[in-house]
Design a protein around this nucleic acid. Structure first.
Lengths: 230, 230
DNA sequence: CGTTCGATCTGAACACGTTCAAGTCGAGCG
DNA sequence: CGCTCGACTTGAACGTGTTCAGATCGAACG
């Protein structure tokens, strides 16, 4: 029979799950900084050292949140993607779905994204360790585009998903800084910029913009042979 | 006679300077994380607690770096701004000047920008405490534009500096993640995107783009009545 | 049953950022 | 000269993330 991955053994996996659950609960309740590793260990019913046996650092603990949030976002996006054909509606729907699923995490997401801004952190959206998550996210925007009735050139069709993802990262960056009630300013940003994006996408077929667009595509190619990092 | 600001009194100012010098030296030598407050205090010849009398936290210590760097950048940009009239040359010159003046700080700037990514940190480029520095930076890009021979509509003329600053923040973000030797990829990014930006600026006068541009300007207005933060 | 060995677990110890109660210093005043 | 007061300085102590040398557990094996 096949050898088991160490962290998939029964006992280990159980303990790992207990720790994650405890951590996410405390994060939501007291925020990231307000949650100590000792508290996490205690809530999970394990020793402090044991928590570090499963998670190399406090930061690594939020990767669990990251994954959970992404699964929720995908699920929340599904209905929109199945229903809408219009590019603007699809893009807007996916972004609002993101804002919805992350609403309750806003407070502690702030400190989470702080560590994510460290290029050396595995949590950075540009880090090698995030590649799977990043690819999944880009794939989502590929579906946003390819499932729509928007007409684009082949070159754009291929690179636009990545650029839409970058655009979504911009929205996230704004959202992190957004202190308005119910993050209405972020929603406003989405509502106002999505039509702009769509219009630019449509314009990209026309002669005046063709040159700029082609050059932009080239730059994306040249710089993403090896991604934003290293 | 006028009352002295406490931190401008003779002895205090001296001590403050000693601490800043010690800190910047150690930052450059061992990086941010590698530098302990105890080491800074020791190098400055003061007690640990005394360092905290002048600087509320380790983070506040890098504001000194921030200011020094900005002064250097301004000085390095001056020749280009006095010489060039072409928008692309001016923009490119200013950005390369930034890369030059910050070259030796790259290693520890990484961790510096990490804390800067925290919206609650006074070091965030979007924070109220950074407003003076931010305004100064935007003013620089206003000079880049207004001293050039580029033809733009009044609306663009007014808002473009802020957008150029945002563009420069994007370059900085890329630079922080850039691990290539001598940050050549960042230089490549500048060389390739500046012409794009210039072409977009020129196109902004034409009918096809007018609508998009006007809408973009509106959004900037609506969202920056109160800035990106609060 | 006894041994072995790797996965799992423990808690004391460490280094660091930060706080604070208690000093010291020096100029101005009576 | 002694006193006062506020600016400045001190170092011990606290809480936290992280490390590590060693338990403990349990399945496989002889």
């Amino acid at each position: 029979m096949a050898a088991r991955r160490p962290d998939t053994s029964e006992r280990g996996e159980q303990t790992r799950t207990r720790i994650v659950d405890a951590a996410l609960g405390l994060f939501e309740e007291r925020g990231y900084e307000g949650t100590t590793m000792r508290a996490v260990a205690a809530a999970a019913g394990v020793s402090l050292g044991n928590a570090y046996y499963y998670f190399a650092s406090k930061d690594h603990l939020v990767q669990a949140f990251y994954e959970r949030s992404q699964v929720e976002h995908l699920a929340a996006s599904r209905p929109v993607l199945d229903r809408e054909r219009d590019l603007g509606a699809r893009l807007s729907g996916v972004l609002h779905a993101w804002l919805d699923t992350n609403r309750r995490y806003h407070d502690f997401a702030v400190t989470f994204f702080r560590t994510a801004a460290d290029p050396d952190s595995p949590l950075s959206p540009f880090s090698p360790q995030s590649q799977p998550a990043r690819d999944a996210a880009i794939a989502l925007y590929a579906e946003v585009l390819h499932g729509s009735d928007a007409k684009v050139t082949p070159a754009v069709r291929e690179r636009l998903p990545e650029m839409l993802w970058l655009y979504s990262m911009g929205v996230v960056l704004y959202w992190v800084h957004d202190r308005s009630t119910d993050v209405e300013r972020s929603r406003f940003l989405v509502d106002r910029t999505v039509p702009l994006v769509v219009r630019l996408v449509n314009l990209s077929r026309y002669r005046v913009l063709r040159g700029v667009v082609d050059d932009a595509m080239d730059i994306v190619d040249e710089l993403s042979g090896r991604r934003l990092t290293r």
